[in-house]
């Protein structure tokens, strides 16, 4: 096992109504996925400002997956606002020479086990390959 202090951590912001129970469903199926994943339950990821994502990378988070409800978002208009925000974050990431693949916006439903595993594995492959983020 890799020593935990060098762990390349993936933060997952999972919506309370879709993706978080989706992650529970993966657990119930006992599907294994990388351990370096930290799932935080959120009401709507639209609440996070651009700086939150940059701060996370600065603090040493290697990848962030936003698992939203997508078009099934219970807050009308939130998904669109979120997508716009993420575009803005990408611009800021480029300015700071951060690989924008470290941040991904997805939609995961309550029983989307395969989609969940795919996203997590893809992000893990990426962060293992490109390593910890380097920021000033």
């Amino acid at each position: 096992m890799e020593s935990p202090d060098k762990e390349k951590k993936i933060l997952i912001l999972a919506t309370d109504s879709c993706a978080y129970p989706g992650a529970d469903s993966v657990g119930q199926a006992h599907s294994s996925y990388p351990a370096n994943t930290y799932i935080l339950r959120v009401r709507a990821p639209v609440m996070f400002p651009e700086q939150f994502y940059l701060d996370c990378f600065k603090k040493g988070i290697s990848g962030i997956i936003i698992m939203s409800c997508g078009e099934e978002c219970p807050y009308e208009g939130a998904y669109k606002a979120l997508a716009t925000r993420i575009d803005a974050v990408y611009q800021l990431m480029k300015k700071q020479d951060l690989d924008i693949r470290r941040l991904r916006l997805t939609a995961i439903c309550t029983v989307c086990n395969r989609a969940f595993l795919k996203e997590v594995n893809l992000m893990n492959d990426l962060v293992q390959e490109i390593g910890l983020p380097e920021m000033d």
Binding site: S17, C18, P21, E72, C109, T110, V111
Partner: peptide, 10 residues
């Protein structure tokens, strides 16, 4: 085309 489980489970 909502996922049925997502509507029934709550």
């Amino acid at each position: 085309l909502d996922c049925s489980s997502c509507i029934t489970t709550p």
